[in-house]
Design a protein around this nucleic acid. Structure first.
Lengths: 196, 196
DNA sequence: GTCTATAAACTGATAGAC
DNA sequence: GTCTATCAGTTTATAGAC
């Protein structure tokens, strides 16, 4: 019988964890297999055994983001639109508080032109899924009357996604940005701040 | 007497022009002196003569952005807030239409953690100046009654900056994003679309 | 699965001739 | 100002031993 630790808690997963940290703090072009191998305490070639090309590693990273985001979305089917928005905000805060990481879609679209085509395709799908979720929150909020705002739900969803993506980046030069943005988005949706 | 062409139309300026194109399409970490020298038709060492370290080139780039942006802002003192906003939108569109370039502040804050300290300081000042301008538009628009929106002018300015910065990046995966964002920001400010 | 060893290309950077 | 020549360091990646 297997030990309590999952069989996926192996080197392959730890490589992804380290690569994710590097991707969200430095970007895909600014980290190397050396960064990973020294952080993991192994040699260069060991990383290539698990992910032969850096493109393979990049694709695996985005696919994991997509699976994780899908689970994140599914896990809050019963929540109100306002509650789902607050979860979105909490997720955003968590990125910033963890070494001032930024949104994966922010990295991927900023470095887009330098990424291999397989990563670009994965990035397209990922951005689509994030936008759809933001749009759904705005749409449901209007439908049940809990949110009141100008424009279409589609446009409001895109605005929220774009603002939070840019906001996480800008927060690196001014840490008050995220708090300001969250309050303003609530105000634009006709919501009041959640009680502390 | 000097020829009609300005004395600043020399190699040093052309290097900055090429570097700017590379920065806004590929990012600071994803272009090299080789890219510049081959585009300019000179050798590697010639670039180092004008900008000994890559950091020098990066600082010069941001300083030029700051001067240019300052002129851009001063050049529209007489315009209404709504007109100034439309100029902002036009500037944004121009970036995207030029090889899908993104906002300089988007590159600089995304790559922030990997930039040398001198570039970080310049980036901080640049972001401050851009945010101040966005806030000023929102503040003047409320003051003269031409814009109506929830929240403070400070928060609305930050939201517009963040949304357009993120929007230029997202536009690389979906070209309709910018049009959607412009319309939504107008709607949130209580403005109607400008006549075509 | 991890290691040693190494390749081939690229990077930022410098010295010194013209 | 630009050139040739060169450097030391890094990057992605592979071959083959253990």
């Amino acid at each position: 019988m297997k030990p309590a630790t999952d069989m996926k808690n192996d080197t392959s997963k730890r490589i992804l964890d380290i690569a994710e940290e590097l991707l969200l703090t430095r970007g895909f072009n600014a980290f190397s297999y050396q960064h990973i191998s020294s952080a993991l305490g192994v040699r260069n070639a060991a990383i290539h055994y698990h992910y032969p090309k850096k493109t393979d590693l990049g694709v695996a990273l985005i696919q994991r983001y997509r699976r994780r985001f899908q689970r994140f979305v599914e896990a809050q089917g019963g929540l109100t639109p306002a509650q789902q928005l607050e979860r979105y905000f909490t997720l955003t805060d968590a990125y910033f508080e963890h070494d001032q990481q930024i949104c994966p879609s922010g990295i991927l679209t900023t470095e887009y032109q330098t990424l291999p085509e397989e990563m670009q395709q994965q990035a397209n799908a990922f951005v689509d899924e994030m936008r759809d979720w933001a749009v759904r929150i705005a749409a449901c909020g209007r439908e049940d009357g809990s949110m009141r705002y100008a424009g279409t739900p589609q446009a409001m969803g895109v605005l929220m996604l774009a603002a939070l993506q840019g906001g996480l980046q800008l927060a690196r030069t001014d840490q008050t940005v995220l708090l300001t943005l969250k309050e303003q988005i609530r105000a634009l949706l006709g919501l009041t701040s959640p009680l502390p």
